[in-house]
Design a protein around this nucleic acid. Structure first.
Lengths: 196, 196
DNA sequence: CCACTTCTGGAACGATCGCTGTAGAATTCG
DNA sequence: CGAATTCTACAGCGATCGTTCCAGAAGTGG
């Protein structure tokens, strides 16, 4: 079985560059031309390696979830209490949303806000991920209530919605140019709303 | 001075339809075709009446600020205390962001999140409006501190950033399908973080 | 070296983008 | 009724969109 001409680029680094482009401008606003220039490859190579723009975006999202967004699951699963989990979540978000080396804010929150009718499925893809994250947050809070860390009448869904809103807001502030210190203050203020 | 052929459409209602279209899909994702269909006029009439797409968007934003977004200035200026002002702001946002008859969320927050390089000035236009709103919120909180409604060591900027983030988050949740009741719970939780 | 396979580079596809030119319809003034 | 003016309808502009086709380059197996 013959082998054929080898690739002139590394697929992982090319995908990383595509991720950064999508992260900055969002799905619709990132053209194939911008992608090929960022990835350092031609359109033919892009389509041969990643299928089409839609598939490339999904691959970039998967890379994002396993990379920069790892802190979300780490915070929710690694903390001893629900309160500690939420605090780690917000503090880590303040760091990641303003970290150098990549665009500010969260890709899952901001990359498919303005969608053309032809790419509503992209919007749905990210919304599903947000819904999963919010459900995980709700479950972690519920576990804290069951463990009697907070009053039994605590509304886990409402509290999860509040901290999900805080995360979305922090992402928006970061995109508007807020610093890590500002976002950390927002996290501190939000944690002051913890029940009990 | 002769008069010429009269318009076959009402400029205000046409602008209202353009506002709704921009509100739903954002600036870049709203094509001229979508606008003309929503406004019920042809491209020629649109350009004769509003200049170009960019000018039409600015006109729609102005109409938005004087219409659906009036609650922001009303809340900040009409309340007797800073705490009451922020509560009115969040409660009214929960109502407006989920009100029927128009898209969910806030146009100023969500209409220019994903921008092509050619429309960065649109992004800047909305960011400036957000910055003005945040400054007004900071000033109202500062006035409350001066009036000894809250501890003198209160950080007005951090608190304003927190409630600005809450508003952005509520807009995002509304766009994801949250109900008025959910957003009102978020507002309640955020108000629990009030200092003092 | 040749056959075979895979990737690269560049041109070009149809569709859509924002926008405009042109012809004709609708109104007022003289 | 013309003359002048302003709007409407429609075709079409150049540019860009995502995508594909094709010739040639770069490898391996015989």
């Amino acid at each position: 079985m013959t082998q054929g001409r080898p690739r002139a680029f590394d697929g992982e680094t090319a995908l990383e560059q595509a991720l950064l482009a999508f992260w900055q401008h969002g799905y619709d606003a990132t053209s194939i031309t911008v992608l090929t220039e960022a990835m350092g490859i031609n359109a033919s190579s892009l389509y041969a390696a990643f299928g089409d723009k839609r598939s490339l975006f999904t691959a970039a999202v998967r890379r994002y979830l396993q990379g920069p967004a790892r802190f979300t699951t780490m915070a929710l699963e690694g903390a001893p209490t629900a309160r500690e989990a939420v605090e780690r979540l917000l503090r880590a978000a303040a760091v990641t949303y303003t970290a150098p080396g990549h665009p500010p804010g969260c890709l899952v929150i901001s990359a498919a806000t303005n969608c053309t009718p032809g790419s509503l499925d992209v919007q749905a893809e990210l919304r599903d991920i947000r819904a999963q994250g919010r459900q995980a947050l709700t479950q972690r809070i519920t576990a804290g209530i069951v463990a009697r860390e907070m009053p039994p009448e605590t509304d886990a869904h409402a509290l999860a919605a509040f901290y999900a809103a805080t995360l979305q807001g922090m992402s928006g502030l970061a995109r508007d140019g807020s610093t890590h210190a500002e976002l950390d203050h927002v996290a501190t203020a939000a944690l002051a709303a913890w029940p009990g």
